[in-house]
């Protein structure tokens, strides 16, 4: 059933500057739902975070998962990697991990008498960077170039990573000993930050009843090729964004810089990230255009790691989620499209 998706294609081509057609949007939604259902076999009752991760993948961004141990961060990453028929790798970040362990290394081949590049685990379609905050800042920084630019430069030679390319990083918020907090610049490279959270009661019981399944990620079979992912990404970029929505995003960014307890508001890159993900989210809903509700839904995962609160917020018990809620309240969403005079 799920594989039927692989046999379908959008009915029209996707050219730059074109607007997504209704048929294409419906095709996109069907594919997206198939993938989400497929991943849902591994993570029970976590539809929202699954859809967020898929949105991140199709928006060509990277996902940071921050949650307590045992909540299914790695499971989510593996499920996403498994659902795509492409290469994937896992890097367990440790304090002694070197940058070359991530990017790869150039070694001398005595037989040929030449230097050869041995690519690291980063050269895969989906890379799981487990417990990224345990690696040294130097190693973390090694990820910067590849996440932002999609290539690695070793010994003066640039090596492109495959497409699609997505880094899913996880980190533990409670065990801070021996960890290195990701700098803001590094955080900004992640399109979204989310958490998995505990499953609900029904999902927990179902999980326990099927405890004989040792690795639920193995249940997730690849149903989408990298070509399909690329095509869906191209289609998502064609979703229409009305000027009023753009204005809304701009107003949110400006308001975020004025909010109490916010030391650093939303950057231009953050605005771009928000617009990218809402387009994919709209397509996943089978729509050809973004609506304000998309912005409100995705504001927290896109903005939460980009807003820097002042120390007073911590003392006052104000969380980033509170601040984002206030931000959305302070800026009314558009009720009509911008007039096209």
């Amino acid at each position: 059933m799920l594989r039927n998706f692989l046999n379908r294609r959008a009915t029209t081509g996707s050219l730059p500057g074109m607007t997504l057609s209704t048929e294409q949007a419906h095709w996109f939604r069907a594919g997206f739902n198939d993938m989400a259902d497929n991943m849902g076999q591994a993570l029970l009752g976590k539809e929202h975070v699954i859809r967020l991760s898929l949105t991140c993948l199709l928006s060509e961004g990277h996902l940071l998962l921050e949650d307590l141990p045992g909540t299914g961060k790695t499971m989510l990453a593996r499920a996403l990697a498994n659902t795509v028929e492409g290469s994937h790798a896992r890097i367990q970040f440790t304090p002694d991990l070197l940058p070359t362990d991530v990017t790869g290394v150039t070694v001398y081949d005595q037989q040929k008498g030449t230097f050869e590049f041995h690519p690291g685990p980063i050269f895969h379609d989906i890379v799981l960077a487990d417990e990224i905050n345990r690696a040294s800042p130097k190693t973390q920084s090694a990820l910067l170039e590849v996440m932002e630019e999609g290539h690695v430069t070793v010994d003066g030679v640039t090596h492109d990573v495959p497409r699609p390319f997505m880094v899913i990083a996880t980190q533990n918020p409670v065990e801070q000993a021996g960890t290195y907090r990701l700098p803001e610049a590094q955080l900004d490279r992640f399109l979204m930050k989310s958490s998995v959270g505990y499953p609900d009661a029904a999902s927990t019981e179902e999980l326990l009843l099927s405890s004989h399944i040792r690795d639920r990620a193995e249940l997730v079979k690849p149903i989408a090729t990298t070509a399909t992912i690329a095509e869906m990404s191209a289609l998502a970029a064609q979703v229409h964004v009305d000027r009023s929505i753009v204005t809304y995003v701009r107003q949110l960014a400006e308001a975020s810089r004025e909010l109490q307890h916010v030391r650093m508001g939303l950057s231009a890159r953050g605005c771009l990230a928000l617009v990218r993900v809402v387009k994919t989210w709209a397509a996943a809903d089978g729509r050809t255009a973004v609506v304000p509700e998309d912005v409100n839904i995705l504001a927290e995962p896109v903005l939460c790691h980009r807003l820097l609160l002042d120390p007073q917020a911590q003392f006052s018990g104000v969380t980033v989620a509170d601040v984002i809620g206030q931000l959305l309240t302070s800026v009314p969403p558009p009720v009509d499209r911008a007039r096209r005079d």
Partner: peptide
């Protein structure tokens, strides 16, 4: 609500 949004903010 969805219908109104889709029509209003559509291309």
């Amino acid at each position: 609500a969805g219908e109104a949004d889709a029509r209003i903010f559509g291309a």
